[in-house]
Structures are given as C-alpha cells and as structure tokens.
Simulated scan of single mutants.
Amino acid sequence: MPESGYFADDSMIRRVMRKRAVGLTYGQRALVVGAVNPLLYVGTAEHTAHRATPYTRLAITGRLFEAVALGTRAEADRARSYTDKKHAKVHGELPEDAGAHHPAGTAYSAHDPHLMFMTMAFTFDSAEVMHDLLVRRLTATEREDLYQDYVYWGELFGMPPGAAPASYPEFRDYFDGYLASEELHLTEEARLVGSYLAGQQIAYPLPLPLNQVVNSVHLLVQGSLPTRIREMYGIRWGRREEMGFRALSRAVRTAHTSVPLTPRVLHGTLAGPSAPVYRMLGRREQELVGSGRPSMPGVDPRSYAERHTV
C-alpha cells in the first residue's frame, strides 16, 4: 500500500492541485498579487539566494508546496524541514518607506503569524481563482473544504492555529477588503519582478512552440488579476486582451469538462504533479544566467545594504 500524505487522496486540495492548469499558473499569480504586500516581498527578497533568479525561486517554492499538498508524509516533512530552516533566518526591518502603512523600520519575520497567514492567503486565493477559471467553478461546500485544507496546509508550514479566519466567507470578506485597502504597495523592485512574472515585460523571446505556451500562461495570469492589481502594475488591458483571455480560458475549461472529446494525447497533460515543469523552468533560468545573461534585466542581485554601502 502506498504511503499516505497529510491529505486524503480525495481531499479538495489534492483534487485541485492535481489539475496542471492550476498547478502551472497559480504560483506565478500568487507571486504577482502577493508582491503588493511589502513586508512579504522585501522580507523574501532580502533573504533569498535567488533575488535575481525568481523563476528558480518559484520552482523551488512550487515543489515544496506541492510536496506538502500532494506528497507522502516523508516527502512533506522534508519540505517542511527545509522551509523551516530557511525561514529561521528571515527577519529584519524595512530599509526604506514602502507606502504610508509600512514606513522604514517596520519589522518583518517569516514566523510572524499574520505574515504566515498572508502567505497562505495569496496561495489559496490563486489556487481557487485558477481552478474556477480553468477547470470549473467550485461549489460552496467544495470551496469551504478547499479553504480548510489550505488552513491546515498553512499550519503544517508553521502557521499558528487561529491565525486564519475560521470560515471561507470570513476569509473572503477579509481578503477582498485587504485587496481594496490602502495597505497595498509595490516597491520599485516588486513592480519590476512582478511585471516579468506576469509577462508585461519579456526579457528574451522563446522559440516556438514554447513561446506560445509561455505567452498563453501570461495571458491567463494577467486576465485573472483583480483590476486594481493590473492597474498597479500598469498592465494594458483592453477589449482585445479581454477577448483573447476569455477565448483561451474557455478552451482550457472545455478540455477539462469534455474529457471524452479531448484528443487522447492531451489526457495525460491535464492532471498530475507540476514539479517536472518547475524543474524545467529552474534549469532554463540557470542556463541563462550561466551564459552571462540576467534572467530579469534590471533586477539587482545585491541586498539593500550592499547596494547602499559607500
């Protein structure tokens, strides 16, 4: 009998995260949206070895998150141990003002209960949004079950019990209110990195057909963003973009809801872990950097202190 994980095989988190359309898009969306929280963005950027290689960081994070949601307990525990060791070093203060609500000197820590909840919140929100968009809309019961799975998922990564709202409706009221609040702020670096991750800026065009795949992911991520977030990044979004987004998302959704009519060659691509694709993204970025080209031109790999040392 295969070793079980922390989540039952029929749990909502597994049912949702096995859908590759979700697994391959929610992470980028979560990073783009989550960058509006300066404590999360600066805290991560100042304590990562991958400041200038965000796709490698996305790949590592994606594999860790997937190990806890989809893996065995042994795989999940290794991911949790690795994450805890990394988080132990993540604490400090904002080196400069990041909006009216986050002046220079504001403290951050990876073990701050609220910031742990916000990490879970951005992750859950993006998984929920991309499943609704690309697979099918969840029922109210499924949505609550998925939320409770993600609360437990957050607790497995160290989030204290009680840090998250008790129910999905309470979560949605809080989170939607947060996204409409004046707390949101993009630092200059967060705006630049997010614009690359969302496909607003393209550093190096990829060869066909990979270029079409990447452009499609970018269109889905941009179209899924709240209007305010798109405006904060200055992402152009008109009738042409909206029509393309609707047509593409409808096609992906149809492939999931009409599986018997879907070409057999696509059946194996609709479901399963996304870790192999994460690894491919990381390898490509490392090859790019190894050849002397920056992954995201303009992103300085040095910390704030290193950049401002006289």
Rank of each mutant, 00 (worst) to 15 (best):
113 P>M: 10
152 Y>T: 14
72 T>H: 11
141 T>D: 12
45 A>H: 14
118 M>F: 08
149 D>N: 11
117 F>G: 06
86 K>E: 09
68 V>L: 06
73 R>N: 05
61 T>I: 08
106 T>H: 06
123 T>D: 01
53 T>P: 01
53 T>G: 06
52 A>C: 13
38 P>N: 03
58 L>K: 03
40 L>C: 07
165 P>M: 14
163 A>L: 12
165 P>D: 11
117 F>E: 04
128 E>M: 11
106 T>Y: 07
161 P>H: 14
72 T>P: 06
114 H>G: 00
131 H>L: 02
56 T>D: 06
150 Y>A: 01
80 R>D: 00
164 A>P: 02
72 T>W: 14
147 Y>C: 05
71 G>P: 06
48 T>I: 13
115 L>I: 09
60 I>N: 00
138 L>M: 09
103 P>C: 12
82 Y>W: 15
141 T>S: 12
86 K>Y: 15
119 T>P: 02
152 Y>W: 11
114 H>Y: 13
48 T>H: 10
124 F>Y: 08
158 G>K: 07
46 E>R: 05
98 A>S: 15
105 G>C: 04
162 G>Q: 14
44 T>E: 01
150 Y>K: 04
55 Y>D: 01
137 R>F: 05
111 H>P: 05
65 F>R: 01
38 P>C: 03
138 L>K: 03
98 A>N: 06
147 Y>R: 02
87 H>Q: 09
104 A>V: 04
45 A>M: 11
96 E>F: 06
112 D>Y: 01
74 A>P: 01
66 E>P: 04
52 A>I: 05
43 G>Y: 13
46 E>C: 04
95 P>D: 09
97 D>S: 12
31 L>C: 13
143 R>H: 10
98 A>W: 07
57 R>F: 12
151 V>C: 07
74 A>S: 10
114 H>I: 04
110 A>L: 07
152 Y>P: 00
76 A>H: 02
82 Y>Q: 14
137 R>T: 08
46 E>N: 08
138 L>P: 15
33 V>E: 11
67 A>M: 05
66 E>I: 00
162 G>M: 12
54 P>C: 03
166 A>L: 15
124 F>G: 00
86 K>T: 09
80 R>V: 14
107 A>W: 02
142 E>D: 09
146 L>C: 03
46 E>V: 04
33 V>C: 07
122 F>C: 00
48 T>Y: 05
116 M>Y: 03
158 G>Y: 08
130 M>E: 10
154 G>A: 15
65 F>Q: 15
147 Y>K: 02
37 N>T: 10
101 H>W: 14
144 E>Y: 01
30 A>E: 15
62 G>H: 05
153 W>Y: 12
101 H>M: 15
78 R>C: 12
52 A>L: 04
103 P>G: 07
62 G>Y: 09
134 L>M: 13
121 A>P: 00
156 L>C: 14
98 A>Q: 11
132 D>M: 05
145 D>A: 13
131 H>T: 08
155 E>R: 10
140 A>R: 12
159 M>P: 03
98 A>E: 07
165 P>Q: 06
157 F>E: 02
43 G>V: 13
70 L>G: 03
45 A>E: 11
51 R>S: 02
134 L>I: 05
95 P>L: 11
145 D>W: 00
